[in-house]
Simulated scan of single mutants.
Amino acid sequence: METSTFVYDGDCAFCTQCADFIARRIPTGARVVPWQFADLDALGLTVAECEEAVQWVGSDGVRAAGPDAIAKLLAGSGPVWRVAGAGLRFPLVRVAAWPVYRWVARNRHRLPGGTAACSLPQEARERLYGPAGRPTTEA
Score class of each variant (00 low, 15 high):
residue 119 S to K: 07
residue 101 Y to W: 09
residue 70 I to C: 15
residue 64 A to T: 03
residue 100 V to L: 15
residue 70 I to L: 15
residue 61 G to A: 15
residue 68 D to I: 08
residue 65 A to F: 12
residue 87 G to V: 04
residue 117 A to D: 03
residue 96 A to Y: 07
residue 97 A to N: 04
residue 86 A to Y: 07
residue 111 L to K: 05
residue 82 R to C: 12
residue 72 K to D: 11
residue 99 P to C: 12
residue 102 R to F: 05
residue 65 A to I: 09
residue 91 P to C: 05
residue 81 W to C: 04
residue 120 L to Q: 02
residue 64 A to E: 04
residue 104 V to A: 08
residue 64 A to C: 09
residue 98 W to G: 07
residue 122 Q to A: 11
residue 100 V to Y: 10
residue 104 V to S: 02
residue 115 T to N: 03
residue 108 R to I: 04
residue 99 P to K: 07
residue 76 G to T: 07
residue 62 V to H: 07
residue 106 R to Q: 12
residue 89 R to K: 11
residue 96 A to F: 12
residue 81 W to S: 11
residue 73 L to T: 00
residue 68 D to S: 15
residue 60 D to E: 04
residue 113 G to T: 10
residue 111 L to N: 01
residue 69 A to L: 01
residue 80 V to D: 06
residue 59 S to W: 05
residue 91 P to N: 08
residue 85 G to R: 07
residue 98 W to S: 09
residue 108 R to N: 01
residue 75 A to M: 08
residue 85 G to N: 08
residue 118 C to Q: 00
residue 108 R to T: 01
residue 67 P to A: 11
residue 115 T to P: 00
residue 73 L to G: 00
residue 65 A to T: 11
residue 114 G to I: 00
residue 119 S to H: 10
residue 74 L to S: 02
residue 105 A to M: 05
residue 110 R to G: 02
residue 85 G to Q: 06
residue 110 R to P: 01
residue 99 P to N: 06
residue 58 G to P: 02
residue 110 R to E: 04
residue 119 S to G: 14
residue 100 V to I: 15
residue 69 A to C: 02
residue 86 A to I: 05
residue 105 A to G: 03
residue 87 G to I: 06
residue 80 V to N: 07
residue 114 G to V: 02
residue 64 A to H: 06
